[in-house]
Amino acid sequence: MLKKRLIFNLLHSNGYFMLSRNFTLQQVGDINWLRDNYKFWESSKFLDEIIILDVSRTDSDFNKFIDTVQNVVKSSFIPVAVGGGIKRLEDVDQLIRSGADKVVINSMFYSNPDEIKKITSKYGIQSVIASIDYKRNKNFDEVYINNGSKKIEIDLVEHIKRVIDVGVGEILLNSMDQDGTGQGFDLDVINRIGDIKNTSLIISGGAGRVDHFSEALILDYDAASTANLFNFIGDGLRCSREDLMAKKINIPVFDRD
């Protein structure tokens, strides 16, 4: 049986990790801070996957980002998906060479789907996660690209159809309304996006409490992700995992001794 996954999403910008609230960023510390103050590498034992996104709003230092990716890959033995600002196949080549197992792509699904086809024909569709930032409007969901700064003219349902047509292994749905609020996931989104039962779905945005993950994973989501460093680093991930197990949600079982 395929298990549900608990994912941590590290937001990175020019050497620092960030907190995001409704897409406004706040710098919190560098990789040493993450290691020393939050024992992140210990916490990663309670995770099933890590996503690292370069969320730099201006020119980003790609070498610093690669350095961070390699540090995370070296310190954990779970899949690492990497993204943020990917514009061409060569960016993907470099990320995969640096230890990324998958890449996360957002804006390019809208602006340059042909380039994504080049990536999937080289690495397979399982190597690509489509990240979609959306915001609730009255009767539909709007989709934003370029770090949430530009609204596109098609809605979430239509955008997902196009993304699946281009070819993708998984879809990361990030609610901009819930992002960083700690109020819980937008659990209902799965009911609004129609029939996409053959592509894995990762829900993101809004986790703030230990039991928010089980609220999502008891539904048909394949994975739930949080970028909320303050709420979950330390004991939070271990407690979240224990909560999932106590609620009989099927998550991976790891040998621990």
Partner: peptide, 10 residues
């Protein structure tokens, strides 16, 4: 069924 098969499986 979701193909690719992605994730942890026993």
């Amino acid at each position: 069924i979701k193909i690719p098969h992605i994730g942890f499986n026993n």
